[in-house]
Design a protein around this nucleic acid. Structure first.
Ligand SMILES: [Mn+2]
Ligand SMILES: [Mn+2]
Ligand SMILES: [Zn+2]
Ligand SMILES: [Zn+2]
Lengths: 164, 164
DNA sequence: GGCTTTATTGCAAATGATTTGCATTAAGGA
DNA sequence: TCCTTAATGCAAATCATTTGCAATAAAGCC
């Protein structure tokens, strides 16, 4: 059974209805290998159904978030917008590295994080229910470019993506 | 030399001017033991100078952020607003635990994070310039209350703080 | 298939934290 | 004290996200 069908069942189980819009958004999410914003998901989905509405995209994403099917988070150094993470359902315990230059996001597991959690609990008590870890830096290929050509004075991608 | 004076010197070094408003905001920050929002800093500072403007608070905070004197970050589960961190200048490498019930924030060091960074670099290459780690859960006292009285059905503080 | 209920949509307007333009004020060096 | 220009106050703009509401359409039932 594929991902869209699985989500559909969870949806029905809570009294929800499967609509063309939701199916489209789910299929769009299923094809993502990145961490798109609501607007990006909207644009991709709209190619198949031009009268889809951005509000519907937001409502669907928030509802998927409640179900634990997608994650959402913000990254530093870009304008304050949520990025959504369909990979969270298949791989709940991954974390993120974000390249300051090319904006690539690398997902990685962090089993050693349990050590840090234990350390914290040992010292301060309480319980940890979730953890968010993000690394910022230069990815391998950007690092090589910087080493080869010297530091760039600005980031063309950042300007393209964050016009303000 | 105290913190305010130190910051003043850095400020002057970059061609900036020390104003009454900036001094007030700096002194307000110096007294913080928490992670206030811009609005909270504004309210605290305004008690001493009622005609202070919120824009000035924002501009001063952003400028301090550039200088590396304060940090800013957002926490999950509250409305999307920046919280500012004066402790970052004295203690650059601390991370945060946030209690889901009482909203308390505990700062903690995480020397073991270096292991995780090394792991990542060994696997994916590149460099890590900064890392953000946040734990979410129940603090010691909230955990005890929950264990003693059973789980709360809602969080009064959350309602007070996030009226939407 | 039709009928009914009500969850969901599209649209436009609202929200709210943060930023910005601009005229006015005031640091701080000469 | 005067001059330059950085900084302020104020109001308006931004912009991602949410929300109210009338219209639409799932899906359960006959
Ligand atoms: Mn991810
Ligand atoms: Mn802190
Ligand atoms: Zn890169
Ligand atoms: Zn607590």
């Amino acid at each position: 059974m594929d991902w869209v069908t699985q989500v559909t069942e969870r949806l029905r189980a809570t009294g929800g209805r499967m609509t063309a819009q939701r199916r489209l958004i789910l299929e769009t999410l299923a094809q993502c290998t990145d961490h798109p914003t609501a607007e990006e998901i909207y644009q991709r989905a709209r190619q198949r159904a031009p009268d889809l509405n951005l509000s519907t995209v937001y409502r669907t994403l928030r509802w998927l978030e409640e179900l634990g099917v997608v994650g959402s988070q913000r990254f530093e150094g870009e304008r304050p917008q949520d990025r959504f993470d369909p990979a969270i359902s298949a791989n709940p315990d991954h974390h993120h590295f974000r390249c300051r230059l090319c904006n690539a996001i690398i997902e990685f597991p962090a089993p050693l994080l349990d050590l840090l959690k234990r350390d914290f609990i040992a010292q301060y008590g309480g319980t940890i229910e979730s953890a968010s870890l993000t690394f910022y830096g230069l990815c391998q290929s950007c690092l090589q470019k910087v080493e080869a050509y010297g530091p760039l004075s600005f980031n063309p991608d950042a300007i393209l993506n964050h016009p303000r």
